[in-house]
Write a protein that binds this DNA or RNA. Structure first.
Length: 114
DNA sequence: CAGATGACCGCAG
DNA sequence: TCTGCGGCCATCT
């Protein structure tokens, strides 16, 4: 509890909070992309920062970051367990290991486009 | 300050 | 969906 403030040295606190808020709203059986999250935050160009935020702040906050993939439907490198989790969520996977974006994509392209 | 890296994106073929 | 090219933003060396 003492070394608790070392996280903020990297990303903007506001940006991180927004990312977490969006990720938490992702329903089970759905996935979203870094670009969509960034776009929802008003920073469609900062898709990389989203990935960085999730990498830096892992499951400690109980974020369903396993539901966040890149625009191609690819999963996070170095994290094989994610695939098992998504399978348990009801996500459909293709033969090469990419999620079925056509069915499981959540965000601007599906429901939140109001 | 410049160059390299990264859980990325868009377009074209 | 895949590959190749260029660009974006922040961090590290």
């Amino acid at each position: 509890m003492k070394d608790f403030k070392q996280n903020r040295t990297t990303l903007s606190e506001e940006f991180c909070r927004n990312v977490y808020a969006v990720v938490r709203e992702i329903p089970a059986g759905k996935v979203t992309t870094y670009g969509d999250i960034a776009a929802l935050l008003g920073l469609p160009q900062c898709s990389r920062l989203v990935g960085r935020a999730l990498k830096q702040v892992p499951q400690a906050l109980a974020l369903p970051c396993h539901r966040v993939v890149n625009a191609a439907g690819r999963l996070t490198p170095g994290w094989q367990e994610q695939r098992e989790i998504l399978l348990a969520e009801g996500i459909s996977f293709r033969a090469n290991g990419c999620v079925d974006m056509k069915e499981c994509r959540w965000g601007l392209t599906n429901s939140l486009k109001c």
